[in-house]
């Protein structure tokens, strides 16, 4: 595990988040190392989405420092932060095909068609979307849509990627394969990411670093072992359940 103080990809300090005058999170402090993923677990309604939206600069009120690669971004509007927010819903633009969706961010930056292709083609391959390039997003399956949304986010080479339970609405098998895909692509491309989820196994699968949101606080753990050792995260209960199940199975 890298030293958290060293050249952090994303650093948040003393961040208070409120929504409609109601305090959601207080005094959030954490740093995500470059090229690694901070997995944040928290129950529904704990403020995970509010935290991501505050980081991305979308609505709500946030006070505190947000730094991306040592640059303060908290005063910047969303489109100038270099932080891409991946919604739980893929939200593919219905007026563009798969290729148009993935290349959308590059079109915003006035890249030529050939330079867009240089970025988009490898992404299409890496995400297993070959053959679907000119499909209408409405005709894709849930997993395919989520992969396109993922590709659209990666195409702009974001400094930080925020993922808001992106796989929550997928069936278990697709979900597992998407988690694996995310791990692989994140490692290959050196992505700095913040991944929030309410699912313990997903949290353990995708994270390099770990944090939990509970009661308006964000608690960061020094490592995987520390995360698992905290009974509030439910790892011990999970292990106990499966070992009991194993014991009774063996008895039968």
């Amino acid at each position: 595990m890298a030293d958290p103080g060293m050249n952090p990809g994303l650093r948040v300090s003393g961040l208070d988040v409120s929504l409609g005058g109601r305090a959601i999170l207080r005094d959030v402090d954490f740093a995500v190392d470059p090229h690694s993923t901070l997995a944040v677990i928290g129950p529904s309604g704990s403020g995970k989405t509010s935290l991501l939206r505050a980081l991305a600069g979308l609505g709500g009120r946030a006070n505190g420092a947000i730094e991306v690669d040592r640059r303060r971004v908290d005063a910047l509007p969303a489109h100038r932060r270099g932080i891409v927010y991946l919604n739980q819903e893929p939200l593919l633009f219905p007026h563009l095909d798969v290729r148009g969706n993935i290349g959308f961010g590059l079109r915003l930056r006035h890249r030529s068609a050939s330079r867009i292709a240089v970025v988009v083609d490898p992404l299409v391959a890496a995400l297993g979307l070959q053959g679907l390039e000119s499909r209408d997003p409405l005709t894709l399956s849930g997993g395919e849509r989520q992969r396109v949304a993922f590709g659209r986010a990666l195409a702009v080479d974001p400094a930080v990627l925020l993922l808001d339970e992106p796989f929550a609405s997928l069936d278990p098998a697709t979900r597992l394969s998407m988690q694996t895909l995310f791990r692989q692509v994140a490692r290959d491309r050196g992505i700095t990411a913040l991944f929030v989820t309410h699912d313990l196994k997903e949290c353990l699968r995708v994270g390099d670093q770990f944090a939990a949101i509970r009661d308006g606080r964000c608690r960061v753990y020094p490592g995987r072992a520390a995360f698992c050792a905290d009974p509030a995260n439910g790892v011990a209960a999970e292990i106990a359940f499966w070992s009991d199940a194993g014991t009774s199975l063996r008895r039968e």
């Binding site: 600069g57 979308l58 609505g59 509007p77 489109h79 932080i83 939200l91 915003l108 925020l162």
Partner: peptide, 17 residues
């Protein structure tokens, strides 16, 4: 609204959105 926000985080200026 979510579409517009998504476009903004991908780098779209309000006019581009």
């Amino acid at each position: 609204g979510a579409f517009l926000e998504g476009a903004a985080t991908l780098g779209a200026t309000p006019r581009q959105a």
